[in-house]
Design a protein around this nucleic acid. Sequence first.
DNA 1: TCAAGGATCCGCT
DNA 2: GCGGATCCTTGAA
Length: 205
Amino acid sequence: VREDDAGRRVGRIVEVEAYLGVEDQASHARFGPTDRNRPMFGPAGIAYVYLVYGMYHCLNVVTEDVRVPAAVLIRAVEPLSGLGAMRAARADTQAARGRRATAIADARLAAGPGLVGIAFGISRADDGRDLCDGTSPLRLERGETPEIVLTGSRVGIEYAPEPWRTHPWRFAVHGSPSLSRPLPRPQRGADGPPLRRTPGVSAGP
DNA sequence: TCAAGGATCCGCT
DNA sequence: GCGGATCCTTGAA
């Protein structure tokens, strides 16, 4: 949920990726604490926002206890309300970059980590924000549990060594029209077997 | 202080 | 399917 001058925007998170521990060689925390990744080492429920490729703000939710760097990257959101504000934000961003406005389907307004940032007006000002505070202008609210969750390897981390490159730590809601890209590996449902813990890792995503 | 490259998106071919 | 945009973060010197 985003509430600001542009209005109220609500969406359902349909795709995420998990990053866990300093040992995760695909995580920003792999170098230990730095000025940028500091929130990852803080308490769960806090936002970690970073700029990627010099252009897009990506939103993460910190998920583990203090000193255990872990976060979930919000890769895609299915717009539920406030679509006008999302479109306006997109138009503003395109104009600021000297691009002409392009058409996009409602379901695709936040279908990617960079697009989530644009559609929900996320910036470094949100870094460190408490997403569990009911009065926060950017916050999480409980939704329904998806029936089928797809898993796959994380995107854009070809630089990482195994086993991190192929850990199935990308999760997506089966059938959502708002996924960032197809996910090839149908997996367990909500009532299926629990996710297997990875050896050497203190806690699962 | 420097050089390298990235948890992406978009427009053109 | 491919390459450009664009700048911050990082490790090394």
